[in-house]
């Protein structure tokens, strides 16, 4: 079985691994690096649960081969914040009930972080556009929009 040597930086730490070319980035993160916070919901690019940051923008890790991430900087939910030092987006989702089962949440959070990076004060429509590729089956989405708006406010206050 042919394997490719890759070097991927995930949450600031560089991992050298040999992977089969067909290995999906989602499986590489979850099974090889044991970073199981990135979830897999459909594996055909519809649900957005597996969304991670790749070189500063979001990518569906189930639609990316790990070899394509060779040399890339990946950020996953594990790099965002910890339970005792949450990222403002995590804090906002907690306060505004932006999650129920939590399965779509990591992908939703990474997408929200990307949005707030390019648009610190998004409108409701901006938020609806940004997360329209992330399915949530629990919330009906409304509190997710509330959460992202609240996160924007927290981040602006932080920055001020």
């Amino acid at each position: 079985m042919e394997r490719e040597s890759i070097s991927v930086t995930v949450n600031g730490r560089t991992y050298e691994r040999a992977v089969e070319p067909r290995r999906l980035l989602s499986d590489f993160l979850r099974d090889d690096l044991r970073l199981t916070g990135t979830h897999v919901g459909c594996e055909h690019g519809v649900c957005g649960s597996c969304t991670v940051m790749m070189d500063g923008v979001t990518a569906r890790s189930c639609l990316t081969f790990a070899v394509m991430a060779d040399g890339a900087e990946i950020e996953t939910i594990e790099g965002l914040g910890s339970a005792d030092a949450m990222h403002p987006v995590q804090q906002a989702f907690w306060e505004k009930h932006g999650l129920q089962c939590g399965f779509c949440t990591p992908g939703m959070l990474m997408t929200a972080v990307e949005l707030l990076k390019r648009n610190p004060d998004p409108s409701v429509d901006d938020i609806r556009d940004a997360i329209s590729g992330n399915l949530c089956r629990c919330t009906g989405y409304q509190t997710i929009v509330d959460s992202i708006r609240h996160a924007a406010k927290l981040m602006r206050e932080d920055g001020a």
């Binding site: 970073l35 979830h39 939910i77 965002l80 914040g81 949450m86 306060e95 009930h97 949440t105 959070l109």
Partner: peptide, 18 residues
Amino acid sequence: KRVEDPRLLVGKGIYTDD
């Protein structure tokens, strides 16, 4: 605020596939 949330928000909840 929910008791369940912190571990889910930081990617530390253990679902079956984890």
